[in-house]
């Protein structure tokens, strides 16, 4: 069953003061997210990711189109009890403590009293917020607020979780923890829909991704499917000053710096390059992907859309 089904949601804003002109934030979007999936919604800044999420949450009304969540109409309050939402750069009531805040959200979501107290402690621990008893939220750092935001999204044990940029504002360790948390949520059978512009996060987590740019969907599928057409580049570094003939024949541009040589070749030539180095008995120092293949795909799609837009003008 599809957990989330978006059927042609679109949004047009009217901009301008005297002469109102329509500006399309989102072209009709069709998307289905399966139950139990981690779905990544990717796009550069201003692509329409947040608009889509806001529409799904009923915070912004779509110009046209509809959606279903868990098989029901998306603005049905019954559905809302089963979804969790983390807004972009969450900001909460300044004068509450994290416990009070979560208690309040628990009340709104209809979590019964005694259960609520236990849950609050449990989620706070889960997102790594400890030692914050009695501290008001205005004294929280950005990362702590982000964690509190994630806590409120999973507090009422929702079946579908929507996260808007869940990793923003977190340090590397925090990002790692959030990644693990998202994977745990999937293991508990929840569906996770998150937007991001950080591709490595998507690559590490998502079963499927959708790429959106300027309000238009550019591609949907599993990462393997999407990146089959593009291959990334790798940077090969070896010790010495000589460039083996096998390397030259690969058409790689080699740069000698001091005692090392570096060459950038495509991923498919990687094995041939290693063989060439081995034949010459050169010591390989590193092979590093210059760009992950999802990134190559992403960049290609975005550049493509820019050139087509350019020809239209």
């Amino acid at each position: 069953m599809a957990a989330i089904e978006i059927l042609g949601l679109e949004k047009t804003y009217m901009v301008g003061f005297w002469h109102k002109r329509p500006k399309r934030a989102l072209h009709p979007l069709h998307l289905a997210v399966q139950d139990g999936e981690i779905f990544g919604f990717l796009g550069p800044n201003g692509a329409g990711k947040t608009t889509t999420l806001k529409m799904l949450m009923g915070l912004v009304f779509p110009t046209a189109g509809t959606a279903t969540i868990l098989g029901k109409d998306w603005i049905d309050p019954e559905v809302k009890a089963q979804i969790g939402f983390l807004p972009e750069q969450p900001y909460f009531y300044d004068y509450l403590t994290a416990h009070e805040l979560l208690d309040y959200y628990g009340q709104l979501s209809g979590v019964p009293g005694r259960e609520r107290k236990r849950r609050v402690e449990q989620v706070l621990e889960r997102v790594g917020l400890t030692d914050i008893k009695g501290v008001q939220l205005r004294k929280f750092s950005k990362g702590m607020l982000q964690r509190a935001g994630i806590a409120q999204a999973i507090l009422h044990n929702p079946r579908v979780v929507f996260l808007d940029e869940p990793m923003s504002g977190l340090d590397p360790l925090g990002r790692r923890e959030v990644r693990d948390l998202i994977l745990q949520l999937q293991q508990e059978g929840k569906t996770v829909f998150f937007s991001t512009h950080i591709l490595s996060d998507a690559e590490a987590l998502c079963d499927r991704v959708a790429i959106i740019n300027k309000g238009e969907l550019r591609g949907v599928g599993s990462i393997e499917e999407l990146t089959k057409s593009v291959q990334g580049k790798v940077e090969v570094v070896w010790q010495g000053t000589q460039v083996p003939a096998g390397m030259k024949s690969l058409g790689a541009e080699c740069h000698v710096t001091g005692e090392t040589v570096r060459a950038v070749i495509s991923e498919s030539q990687q094995d041939a390059a290693i063989d060439a180095l081995r034949r010459e008995r050169l010591r390989l120092i590193s092979i590093i992907p210059v760009r992950t293949s999802l990134e190559s795909y992403f960049v290609e799609k975005l550049q493509h859309s820019q050139t087509t837009a350019g020809t239209l003008v």
Partner: peptide, 12 residues
């Protein structure tokens, strides 16, 4: 302050 978002996304 966008505190409304987290309230309206609940069954209210």
């Amino acid at each position: 302050r966008r505190t409304l978002y987290t309230v309206l996304s609940r069954p209210v």
